[in-house]
Design a protein around this nucleic acid. Structure first.
Lengths: 114, 114
DNA sequence: ACCTTGAATAGACGTACGTCAACATAGAGG
DNA sequence: CCTCTATGTTGACGTACGTCTATTCAAGGT
């Protein structure tokens, strides 16, 4: 799995290269599972965009499955984790979120002559 | 697969319900494949956000595979298709794109007391 | 009617994915 | 040390997914 750094202009501006697509698709893929998306939204909507696993683990699947999904989100570059004593905290990477948001903006609207 | 209508406030605002997550994850999932993301970006970056299949089919996979992926994007609500004579045109749904972009905006930043 | 080109469908195949139960690891606190 | 709680890891299982070849459907042109 690629490092998943922020990437690329709005999708409406120009087509992605194969490499850009691979890197970027990895991030979308990470959010493409309902359980992962819920976990991510739970972290993102917590104060300071950060939450303990114990605060977000109630999503209807077993604890190992939660851990597995958090790992996937981390590998995709969308979350970072840090152990503080007994608990492990996950935090969203705001820059990555912003990059994905920009990717989906349809700002320029090329050649809409009207 | 759900109808995939536009949905939901920014991920930072509140956590998604299970149903919202399922609906929304389907859209992210559709963009979570490199080939599909390239196809989508090709359509999105064409004039009027619309392109003939013949204009975008060169992504390194067979023609049936391209057709398969375009169908998936359509089922996810991200593209619409229309036959015009010999050719079939695919067009992005701007509202859906905008909704996804808004979902990824981290506007309010709750409780960053600093 | 026939053939040609553009695009969708059907079916098959290998791989990746989501899930779980069982086990392992990490600190905290007696 | 031992144990309790919080997370992560392993290995297995069924299903979904991406891809292909072969075939079919749709429109045009001759």
């Amino acid at each position: 799995m690629l490092p998943a750094e922020p990437c690329c202009p709005p999708l409406t501006e120009r087509e992605l290269t194969a490499e850009e697509a691979q890197r970027t698709a990895a991030m979308f893929k990470a959010l493409g599972d309902p359980v992962r998306l819920r976990l991510f939204s739970k972290v993102a909507s917590h104060p300071d965009n950060e939450a303990c696993v114990c605060d977000i683990a109630d999503v209807g699947v077993s604890q190992p499955t939660v851990s597995h999904h958090l790992k996937k989100l981390k590998e995709a570059g969308l979350l970072a984790s840090e152990r503080r004593g007994t608990w492990v905290y996950y935090r969203v990477e705001p820059s990555v979120l912003a990059a994905m948001g920009q990717l989906l903006s349809l700002a320029p609207a090329p050649a809409k002559v009207a």
